[in-house]
Structure formats: structure tokens, C-alpha cells
């Protein structure tokens, strides 16, 4: 594809409580097939999507968190997490299930300015 655009997916919702997190993941996996420049951002309650050790048997909802570890194989390697959101939820990088880049709010804002398309979930 000649025209590569910068796509950013901004995830701000916790998993399971609403369908947004899963829907976002599915759109990301589909977008990845089109060889675009894809970044994922996790901020506010969205950082909970990255939490290690999710066990969903008891709520009878599919645990989709292992799929974030598959993103590397989809060439989706730009994962950004907002530090302030992690701090506010008592989480650190060690709590997350994949390697991410931790950014300040200001860095996140600057990164958003570089995008061609921003999709919010």
C-alpha cells in the first residue's frame, strides 16, 4: 500500500464492564491487516485492559487479554500507557501483561498531534 496513514486507537474504558475494549481490539486486529502505522494508547480506565492475570471464568465472558500479547505478531508494536492514569489506579509497569512505553500526559498529547486518524474507544 502506497499511502500509509498513522492510526491511533485511544482506549479509555475498563474491560468487561462495557464492550468498548473488545470492540477496539477487534478493529485493531483488522486494521493491522492493512499495513498501516498503528499505535495503541491506554489511558484513564483503559489501563485496566493491560492488567496481568485476568481470570474471567466466573463472569462467563471471554478473557481477551491474551490477545494483546499477540499484537507483536500482527506488527502492532506501538503501545503507549499514560503514567498518570496508572498512578491513579495503583498500577505500575510490572502489573501490565506486555511491554509498553509509558508517557506523560504532555507526551501523549504531542503524539496525538502527529496522527492522521484517531479512533476513540
Amino acid at each position: 500500500m502506497s499511502d500509509i496513514k498513522k492510526f491511533m486507537f485511544v482506549n479509555r474504558k475498563a474491560p468487561y464492564g462495557t464492550i468498548y475494549a473488545l470492540e477496539s481490539l477487534e478493529v485493531v486486529l483488522i486494521t493491522a491487516a492493512f499495513d498501516q502505522d498503528v499505535s495503541l494508547v491506554f489511558m484513564d480506565d483503559g489501563v485496566y485492559q493491560m492488567k496481568k492475570g485476568q481470570q474471567t471464568k466466573g463472569i462467563e465472558i471471554k478473557n481477551f487479554s491474551p490477545a494483546y500479547r499477540a499484537l507483536d505478531g500482527y506488527d502492532v508494536e506501538k503501545l503507549y500507557v499514560d503514567k498518570e492514569s496508572m498512578d491513579a489506579r495503583g498500577l505500575t509497569e510490572d502489573d501490565l501483561l506486555v511491554d509498553v512505553t509509558v508517557l506523560s500526559r504532555a507526551e501523549m498529547g504531542a503524539l496525538m498531534d502527529e496522527q492522521d486518524v484517531i479512533l476513540s474507544f
Binding site: R12, M108, A110
Partner: peptide, 8 residues
Amino acid sequence: ESCLNTAT
């Protein structure tokens, strides 16, 4: 609030 804190 998130928007005001994040966006440039």
C-alpha cells in the same frame, strides 16, 4: 477532563 489534561 482527560481531554483538557492531555490534548495540546
